[in-house]
Design a protein around this nucleic acid. Structure first.
Lengths: 208, 208
DNA sequence: GTTTTTACCATGCAGTCGCATGAGAAAGTG
DNA sequence: CACTTTCTCATGCGACTGCATGGTAAAAAC
């Protein structure tokens, strides 16, 4: 946090970092993780390389910043879409749908996510951030499952944590296959409803 | 195929290519896709950089070679483990288990696979190879599901193709999460059996 | 208006990148 | 044996890499 005395030339650091993080996102999406470099990101952000270095001391830190920004972005999106649903089961379906690459924006998001998945395998910093994101999302899903159980929408004997894990794993696998072009958005939605239908018998989904 | 007349200094080209491909695998596993370079691979393979260039004209081609080698390797492993099972349902479970990162070798395999998943998103050549691998594996799984249905082990009304897609998607999602350290091998096996149990009620799994 | 702190940028540096080239070693053929 | 073809390597090239440095513009503090 900035001190309130002696503060020359104030700029919004968070905004700058966000700007840089989003430039990283665009580079990853357009040219892949391999072509992320300080110069490339600086050019994409429309600033000099020195500016990038001012806000981020190393490339690893830059990637970590971009990953954290992605995670919070996804979190916001999920929260927003969940807030628009009425029943816990609707929240569950809407949340997973929000995470699938069903339109251009969600594709954009998932491309970056997959790139970081692979990158996290060799970077412990990123892996830690990734695990935190997993945990947060899974606990949210598990909470909705428990709520659905309390509301009588799901069988009480189901293990909420396990079901959340299974549902999310399913979604992630679909993402992988879809991003390399194996599934169309229609396939994806159909498969998700099939998986959900297996979780709760006799349930008709609404629109996307 | 090589001509049988006028053939000086014969070497086994396939063996050389395999050697290079496996060096690429090791580099990807140890240091990640970003640090795959002609020099690094040559050093890992124990040959000069020029030799790598002799068998592979460009870096993209080298990666494609490594990807195809990985795919056929996985194919061989699956075929081998499937041959050791008795019933179609056992084949199904054993096949998916073979694809999960349950020990060091399968982790090795999956790390490389995930790296290529991400890489394929920005490389159409690799994406095509990836899709071919998907199609082959999914048709194999679907075939086993149909066989299980014919043998009365699975309900006849199930859509084999859809079930294969769902099962494999689930497995892939588990792989992603496990590789960043979110699940332990025990979690993984338990989750798979849970998913399989949902496919066929009242079925006790044997050992790994 | 001077000073001080912050923010930003241009440039330099050693190292690596993919790829091309030419020379030479090895193993066949006559 | 000489001769041809296959194979392997060392080296050079321009471009790019992450990172460090020194300088400068701008705004708050005094």
């Amino acid at each position: 946090m900035r001190k309130w005395w002696n503060m020359p030339k104030i700029v919004d650091h968070d905004a700058r970092r966000r700007h840089i993080a989003e430039a990283v996102h665009r580079v990853i999406h357009d040219k892949g993780m391999e072509s992320v470099s300080l110069r490339e990101v600086a050019a994409e952000a429309g600033v000099s390389m020195g500016t990038v270095q001012y806000y981020v001391t190393t490339k690893d830190q830059m990637l970590l910043l971009a990953l954290e920004r992605l995670a919070s972005w996804i979190g916001e999106r999920v929260a927003a879409v969940a807030a628009r649903q009425s029943t816990p089961l609707d929240v569950l379906r809407a949340t997973v749908l929000e995470l699938l690459p069903l339109d251009e924006e969600r594709s954009y998001l998932n491309r970056i996510g997959l790139a970081f998945q692979a990158s996290s395998v060799v970077s412990e910093n990123q892996a830690a951030a990734m695990r935190a994101g997993y945990a947060s999302l899974l606990s949210f899903l598990a909470g909705q499952i428990r709520a659905a159980q309390a509301a009588g929408q799901l069988a009480a004997h189901l293990d909420a944590g396990k079901e959340a894990s299974m549902l999310y794993a399913f979604a992630q696998g679909i993402v992988n296959a879809t991003l390399v072009g194996h599934y169309t958005p229609e396939d994806v939605a159909a498969l998700l409803d099939h998986q959900l239908a297996r979780l709760v018998a006799g349930w008709t989904p609404d629109s996307t």
